[in-house]
Amino acid sequence: MEALRLVLLYAHLIGFALLLGGSIAQYVTNRLRVNPAMLWGAVIQLLTGLGLAAPLRDGDEPAPAKLVTKLVIALLIFVMVFFSRKREAVNRGHFLAIIGLTLVNAAVAVFWR
């Protein structure tokens, strides 16, 4: 089971890199549009996060409050990305919220023990 958890964690990190990297690339070019990397990153983050939340470990489970918090943030990111994917331009505040929530989600994962 540890190997499966590590594969899910690796895929989760790839999803984070796609989501954050895709959004930062769009922000730097000043073309605020949801790109495919952002969409795939949000999907990968959500699916692998659900897999990581499954009870695969022996007594070393994350706190339920942490899991619910991360799930709510991941769902918000997914909804914001999914429903904006076909727009030619996204509002700056909306786009910054995607980046901010992505960073908050990572912070919850790292700092909440």
Rank of each mutant, 00 (worst) to 15 (best):
G59V: 00
L4F: 13
D58V: 02
H12W: 03
L103V: 14
N91T: 00
A17H: 07
L101G: 04
R92M: 05
G59L: 02
H94P: 02
I44W: 03
R33P: 00
M80L: 15
E88A: 15
N30D: 11
V28F: 13
E2K: 14
L56I: 12
H12R: 11
L6E: 11
A17E: 07
P36A: 09
G59C: 01
A89S: 10
I77T: 05
G51H: 10
A106T: 15
R33K: 15
A89I: 02
L8P: 03
A3L: 15
V90P: 03
N105F: 08
L4N: 04
A37Q: 10
G51R: 07
N35F: 13
D58S: 02
A107M: 15
E88C: 00
V104N: 06
A109H: 09
P62Y: 01
L47T: 12
G100M: 00
A109I: 11
R31S: 12
V68S: 03
I98H: 00
A65D: 04
L47C: 15
L19H: 05
R87C: 01
L103E: 08
N35Y: 12
L50E: 08
L52N: 02
E88I: 03
L18W: 13
F83Q: 07
V104Y: 10
L32F: 11
V81T: 08
Q45V: 13
N105M: 10
L46R: 15
G21M: 08
R92T: 01
A54N: 08
R33W: 05
T102I: 04
K86V: 03
K86Y: 05
W40M: 13
A109P: 04
V28Y: 08
R113W: 01
T102M: 06
H12P: 01
R87S: 09
A54G: 08
G21Q: 09
Q26N: 04
H94R: 06
N105V: 07
A53S: 08
P36S: 08
V28K: 13
F111G: 07
I99W: 01
A97N: 03
F16L: 12
K66P: 04
A89E: 06
V34K: 13
M80T: 03
L19S: 07
R57H: 09
G49I: 10
R92D: 01
